[in-house]
């Protein structure tokens, strides 16, 4: 599965799109220290945080995309920071259901 497949999931909305890349797993967490240490490379990261620091962590952990679940949005600073770095999506669904939708594409 690639990010282009994730952005095609009808429930999701694109906030910012980067070049396509592989998605090999899905990861959910909101505490940045845990995400930083545990988010697998090439994962789709589902979170309810939408600040600029999420982009820094996403980029350092090298995840494929960040999905703001539960109807949360990325703030302007975050979207600005994501440019050249990482694809951002939004989902109105809860974290678990959002992650499940990605997971369905992985199995």
């Amino acid at each position: 599965m690639t990010v282009n497949d994730v952005v095609k999931i009808p429930e999701f909305e694109i906030v910012w799109q980067e070049e396509d890349r592989q998605v090999t797993s899905v990861f959910t967490c909101d505490l940045l220290s845990i995400c930083m240490a545990k988010a697998p490379e090439d994962s789709a990261w589902v979170t309810v945080m939408g600040n600029r620091n999420v982009i820094a962590v996403a980029s350092l952990a090298d995840v494929s995309c960040v999905i703001a679940a539960e109807g949360c949005s990325f703030d302007e600073e975050a979207v600005e920071a994501a440019k050249g770095k990482v694809t951002l999506l939004k989902s109105p669904l809860p974290v678990f259901e959002t992650a499940c939708l990605v997971h369905q594409g992985l199995v």
Binding site: D30, L31, L32, S33, I34, C35, A37, M49, N51, N53, V54
Partner: peptide
């Protein structure tokens, strides 16, 4: 509130 302070650093 910003996602830090987990005491894991």
């Amino acid at each position: 509130g910003l996602g830090f302070g987990a005491g894991m650093g």
